[in-house]
């Protein structure tokens, strides 16, 4: 007799949700840090450096995330570096996020009017101050809707981590479903959990987008 979907099962899903959130958080934080570096290098003005970063971005945008996770988890294991599932997927997602966020922010940096940089240069401000004080605050505003959009994709995308045996929300749902034979109920609950996580973010993102559109009309 299979167990029914009850509190213990729900608790198991909640722990999966926690792992999903933790993985998202780590990947997003790491992706933001590395992505900023990618965006800055991609706009640094040095042709060679920009070209290398373009290839980096191209590789991670042009191959499936699944493949990238395989490479980190199984590929590195072949070289003798055996990583824990969480560490492996965290690295995979971080590197992948750095390419996507880097490209989003590259666009935002380039969307800041050229006159802003010129005014900063004319005032004698160095690169670091030009970026920190003038360009990045404006680029952040411009990129916020797309960044939030990417975060939502990332939350849902973490379900791919199941493929290397990491038990996050989607994988937890599969396990519970197999035990209880109540797939509709279980995956309904799993879906609701993703929705509660993602929908407010999406809503916030589109509100930011509307506000930005309004501001640019003035």
């Amino acid at each position: 007799m299979a167990p029914h979907f009850g509190l213990p099962e729900f608790g198991f899903l909640l722990r999966g949700l926690q792992w999903t959130m933790l993985l998202t958080l780590v990947a997003f934080a790491g992706g933001c840090t590395a992505g900023l570096a990618v965006a800055l290098l991609r706009t640094c003005g040095h042709k060679g450096v920009e070209w290398i970063v373009r290839i980096y971005i191209g590789i991670f945008q042009g191959t499936p995330l699944l493949l990238q996770l395989f490479v980190v988890y199984y590929g590195l294991a072949l070289t003798g570096l055996k990583l824990e599932a969480f560490v492996a997927v965290a690295i995979g997602f971080t590197v992948n996020a750095s390419a996507f966020l880097g490209e989003i922010w590259r666009g935002a940096i380039q969307a800041v009017p050229r006159g802003q940089t010129e005014a900063a240069m004319a005032l004698g401000l160095h690169y670091s101050s030009r970026m920190r004080d003038v360009v990045l605050p404006q680029a952040t505003r411009i990129s916020l809707p797309a960044t939030i959009g990417y975060l939502v994709q990332l939350i849902k995308g973490t379900s791919l981590a199941a493929i290397v045996g990491f038990i996050e929300l989607a994988r937890a749902g599969q396990i519970v479903s197999n035990q209880t034979f109540q797939p509709l109920l279980v995956f309904g609950v799993v879906g609701a959990m993703y929705f509660i996580l993602c929908w407010p973010l999406s809503w916030w993102g589109s509100r930011m987008e509307a506000r930005l559109a309004l501001a640019s009309q003035r």
Partner: peptide
């Protein structure tokens, strides 16, 4: 640049 100030057509205030 420390010695030269500039004012632009499009203001370019931050």
């Amino acid at each position: 640049r420390q010695d030269v100030g500039m004012v632009f057509q499009s203001f370019n205030l931050f």
